[in-house]
Write a protein that binds this DNA or RNA. Structure first.
Lengths: 200, 200
DNA sequence: GTCTATAGTCTGATAGAC
DNA sequence: GTCTATCAGACTATAGAC
């Protein structure tokens, strides 16, 4: 939005978006209700709709916030750096995002599971283009014999899956793994797998 | 159920469960409606409820069917076999399930994302026990120097995430990857990663 | 800005004809 | 077994008092 806002407006919008993230990330767009979000935000339902004209607008606002930060770790992967360390750095940034922003990860997962109705264009556009660009970088590294000759696309998919799993399937990880914090072990295993995978 | 059923009953129950799987796997329990399921099944809503007394019963029936087959690939991992081939065989069976039963994978993913309200006991029970048992097997292989000394739990998580990704995030994979069938490439990459990861 | 009240629609489930 | 009609409650969104 481009309109100026008072402090109280900004605060309430933030509270609503955080509550919406809690609810939408768990139940998806269709499975979430304004009552749940209002309850989580500590506001009445009409008051929610004073700040966001519809349930849809809360959701799409969250999605567009998400997209703008979701690609940053991959964008930061630098052609000029050391190939193995660049890929590993990307994977670790992605894992950190699963630890620090699990709700955003689950929001994205829910949107994809439901067929990406509100994000499909971005997947076929910016995401596809960015991945194609980085796949080219990876192929360049491979042509110079810097890393093993694996398919760049599946390499990137494997980094996505290995890292997002700890956010999206947190409930399962917690149920199965007899430790408090899964992330130290996850990072060690991720580093082991990727270094071995990429070694020439 | 234990009651005898006519052929038409069996057929309609099957049709309803398949339609329910279509819908629930996409929108989760809360986001799915009986109208959607009835439409997908080609039956009227009251007729649906003639076969299953409630929406909840369709869903829980699907979940219990899922659980009984979901663990089979891991159960089949054999202590007495060759360690690398056993783990690789498990991973490949799991990947085949993502290819052949993507709806079941997404149903499970949705249930976990929503906090596993109807499957939590199984996660803390049979699943946790099975994984603990197989982790012990893997530790035995490691003690004998047969495979690399990686954390068995994170190894199993990595196999889950790498394989289920191609079912759960299919829409994203299709949007980004410029090929028709992602699975041949996925299997090759999976095998490469795991052989490298496990090598002593 | 925030609330109560409520309109209008959707949803899960039931009644009852055929 | 299958349908039309329908109820009761939940849902998104609006009206209007304060």
């Amino acid at each position: 939005m481009t309109q100026p806002r008072t402090r109280i407006q900004q605060k309430n919008r933030t509270v609503i978006l955080s509550a919406g993230l809690d609810v939408f990330s768990q139940y998806g767009f269709r499975g979430s209700t304004l009552d749940q979000i209002a309850e989580a935000a500590g506001l009445s339902k009409p008051n929610l709709l004073y700040y966001f004209a519809s349930k849809e607008l809360i959701y799409t606002e969250l999605l567009s916030e998400l997209l703008s930060t979701w690609l940053d770790p991959l964008i930061a992967m630098n052609d000029a750096g050391d190939p193995v360390e660049e890929i590993l750095g990307y994977a670790k940034r992605k894992l950190s995002m699963s630890r620090d922003y699990p709700r955003e990860s689950r929001l994205f997962a829910n949107e994809i599971l439901q067929g990406a109705p509100r994000i499909s264009a971005s997947l076929h556009g910016e995401l596809k283009d960015l991945v194609a660009e980085k796949a080219k970088v990876i192929r360049g590294w491979q042509a110079h014999g810097k890393i093993a000759d694996v398919d760049p696309y599946h390499l990137i998919f494997s980094i996505w899956s290995l890292t997002q799993h700890y956010a999206d399937f947190d409930v399962q990880v917690q149920a199965v793994l007899p430790v408090d914090d899964a992330f130290p072990g996850a990072e060690a295993h991720l580093e082991h797998m990727l270094r071995r995978t990429l070694a020439v």
